[in-house]
């Protein structure tokens, strides 16, 4: 058996449909066949393998955009073997497929902030072509792409304070003049993807700890 990581994209839009990683039977191809003919046979083998794969059907590590799957017509997708990247399942979600050129391309970078969930301080500003997931205990990554926060990338340092009366987070910038985010972000809406579970006092101000 061979471990493969397969990704499906829409051919017309290049949109990611889903990914699957698991064990499949080894291809049975004459080792003396090389070059273009071998590639053709390997592609045909993969086409047979992938025909048994889809959402809800088989065990395997997988993620799917079910809306894209349902919208994709017969023959409207391409299946790529991306095993060589060695990336986790789901990391190809922002890839784009260029069907005429048979090229896997990058979308725009996403912008993130990372916060400590005990003090709600921002510890990092980040940009990446690939998803950045929570990897440090006690810290949480927030994707701020396409929000008014994103254009201040590299300057967003400070901490969030829970406004109980308004039921929202507000932002208190830190740092010296010129290197920190402008005060207008203090009132800018943001979804931190966190709940609030208990009150605490931090630096003399009323805040609430985030539930992570």
């Amino acid at each position: 058996m061979a471990l493969v990581h397969l990704v499906w994209f829409r051919r017309t839009t290049g949109q990611w449909i889903g990914e699957w990683k698991g064990l499949v039977p080894e291809p049975d191809i004459d080792p003396t066949i090389i070059g273009d003919e071998r590639l053709r046979l390997m592609n045909a083998w993969q086409q047979r393998i992938q025909s048994t794969l889809g959402p809800r059907c088989l065990p395997g590590e997988q993620e799917w955009n079910l809306d894209e799957w349902d919208a994709c017509p017969s023959g409207g997708a391409v299946c790529l073997d991306v095993t060589r990247f060695g990336w986790p399942i789901g990391d190809h979600a922002w890839h784009r497929w260029d069907d005429p050129h048979r090229m896997l391309d990058w979308g725009d970078e996403h912008t993130f902030i990372e916060i400590r969930t005990d003090t709600m301080e921002i510890v990092a500003n980040q940009r990446s072509h690939r998803p950045i997931r929570d990897a440090v205990p006690g810290q949480h990554v927030v994707d701020i792409t396409h929000t008014q926060w994103a254009r201040f990338y590299g300057r967003i340092f400070g901490r969030f304070i829970w406004r109980e009366g308004e039921q929202r987070w507000s932002f208190m910038p830190s740092g010296t003049e010129g290197c920190c985010a402008p005060k207008e972000l203090a009132e800018a809406p943001i979804d931190l993807g966190l709940g609030v579970e208990k009150e605490s006092v931090y630096h003399g101000e009323f805040v609430q700890r985030a539930r992570h």
Partner: peptide, 17 residues
Amino acid sequence: VNDKTGYSLTAGSYSVR
């Protein structure tokens, strides 16, 4: 279970930017 895929490409059959 999957008739949506028009064709499949193994590593080496497509390029990456």
